[in-house]
């Protein structure tokens, strides 16, 4: 067989994907455990309290990474859905399917930790601040995406429908977000983690937060690989069963 140049599309072959991810998962799991353990324990036990917020600030080490992932997982689903529509790689579609429940969980974690953080600082669990509203919107679109998969049986048609739904969802989620921003500015502070600004949060909080972000990201990758492998196997099983019943 012609040995082609190594490229990212190699893993689009489900067999290759399963073998590569099988090697990657233990490695990623170790990295996840190490970095999350380091980041969270560093953040919670070895950083000073904020002079205004007290110890309540420490929930930032869960809240910010999960919120960061919640949004980025949707963007990842959008990209993989488009790849599915353009190049018809099943792994890409199944990765989007596998990522959705992780994204939903991260959204819920971000909302819950935000509520716990908001109670002592803002004096309320929930307020219709634009960012909270965006997360409520994000939650709805995650639910919509997951429900199309759970309601319909797996086939290529449902894959196309879900990919289109993901694209439509992102258009309308973005529109809704700017519609919300049009009317109010809200309680959240501006971005304080950007790379290009002078005034970031102080290094004492910044470094453990970075470790936590990295830890959450590798946690997501681990879970994603495991779930995608499961999805690939489910798909294989169902096609085998279909072939058997046809005989």
């Amino acid at each position: 067989m012609h040995k082609s140049k190594r490229s990212i599309w190699e893993i689009a072959n489900p067999k290759r994907f399963v073998s590569i991810s099988g090697k990657l998962i233990p490695l990623l799991a170790i990295v996840t455990i190490f970095s999350l353990g380091l980041g969270v324990s560093w953040g919670i036990f070895f950083t000073p309290n904020d002079f205004r917020q007290g110890s309540a600030v420490k929930i930032i080490y869960i809240h910010v990474p999960s919120a960061f992932l919640a949004i980025n997982i949707y963007i990842m689903m959008l990209i993989t859905s488009i790849i599915w529509l353009v190049r018809r790689h099943h792994v890409s579609l199944l990765a989007a399917k596998a990522a959705a429940p992780i994204g939903l969980t991260m959204t819920l974690v971000a909302i819950l930790t935000g509520a716990i953080w908001g109670k002592p600082i803002w004096g309320t669990y929930w307020v219709w601040d634009p960012r909270l509203t965006s997360f409520a919107i994000l939650l709805m679109f995650y639910i919509g995406y997951i429900s199309i998969w759970s309601a319909l049986e797996y086939n290529e048609k449902v894959g196309d429908l879900s990919a289109l739904l993901c694209i439509i969802g992102s258009i309308f989620a973005l529109l809704s977000r700017y519609a919300v921003l049009f009317w109010s500015q809200g309680l959240h502070q501006g971005a304080s983690l950007s790379l290009d600004k002078e005034e970031n949060i102080s290094n004492v909080f910044y470094l453990p937060l970075l470790v936590c972000l990295f830890g959450f990201f590798s946690l997501f990758l681990t879970l994603l690989l495991i779930r995608t492998r499961t999805e690939i196997r489910i798909k294989r099983m169902s096609s085998l069963m279909r072939r058997n019943s046809e005989k």
Binding site: G144, S147, I148, L164
Partner: peptide, 27 residues
């Protein structure tokens, strides 16, 4: 169009479509 050919998927349809009305509803 999304729920075409699905029996009794009125609920499914509302789950997809109601959130997409949000920009119009908000304004």
């Amino acid at each position: 169009a999304l729920t075409l050919g699905e029996r009794g998927s009125h609920l499914l349809l509302s789950i997809f479509i109601l959130p997409t009305f949000l920009p119009i509803l908000l304004f």
